[in-house]
Design a protein around this nucleic acid. Structure first.
Lengths: 137, 137
DNA sequence: CTAAATGCAAAATTTTTGCAGTCCC
DNA sequence: GGGACTGCAAAAATTTTGCATTTAG
């Protein structure tokens, strides 16, 4: 996985630095779509000298080169994910947890006629909102 | 429309103030899913003494009472809309414009089995990303 | 060696809060 | 009149930037 990432960096003319590798590794291992701050809290344990702005810069760079995705949220903090395969999100309104899921039926659907003149559609995602099992007790 | 809003406020025990009415009116008239800042720029023309924090507070209050919606974006600024009928968004990656559309086929679809154990789904939305007509030249 | 990346500090942006005064109900 | 709301100012939270130094290629 890290091998793939390194190759993607080289292909994009990005230098493979220790910090970038660790930021990516931490993000890829996370299941919780972390923010820059959350990554920082984790990373500083292993890399005591890493700075928050390096993480911001790494994330922005990765996103620009489509190595990671900035997740759509309605919270003030930006959150990220390394998973690039087509998938969707279910967001708990109480705890804010974002759960990934796949939905072939949706992926195969054609966009409505209403959008025919809109432009070029590159990405099509579903966002569900509700209350997760854990919070509904 | 403003009448409806006033009633909704009373039902929610919210005082109907001049500022709140104007914030709501401006948002309801906007087609561009504005941010607090954008609303402020508009509103100050008519209400020279209104402050930005009042707008933030009004928006937060309206959202809490489900009178408006905070739109999911991957930009740092929060954006809002007054339209509460079920609809979806197409976002232009270049200019950031958010276009509303309806999609009955999607609305009627059942969520995938994979999500059966997740919890209670309250809302189901599609977000398309692409390049709008104007930007694709 | 050189351009790009990092760390530090400082600034910019966006949002929230405390408090005194004002206004709706 | 009383509690909710507003405006002001100040703070908090989040993100970006300038610059000297370090590092990957």
């Amino acid at each position: 996985m890290m091998r793939e990432f390194e190759n993607a960096c080289r292909k994009a003319d990005l230098k493979v630095t220790h910090q970038r590798l660790e930021v990516y590794r931490e993000l890829a291992q996370s299941v919780n779509h972390p923010s820059a701050e959350m990554l920082y809290t984790q990373l500083i344990k292993k890399l005591p000298t890493i700075s928050l702005d390096t993480i911001y810069r790494a994330l922005a760079t990765f996103e620009k080169h489509h190595l990671i995705t900035r997740v759509q949220t309605n919270k003030s903090q930006a959150r990220y994910e390394a998973k690039m395969e087509q998938h969707h999100h279910a967001v708990c309104s109480i705890c804010g947890t974002i759960t990934d899921f796949t939905w072939d039926y949706f992926d195969e659907a054609l966009v409505p006629e209403e959008l025919n003149g809109w432009g070029i559609v590159n990405k099509k995602n579903a966002v569900l909102e509700g209350i997760c099992k854990a919070c509904s007790r």
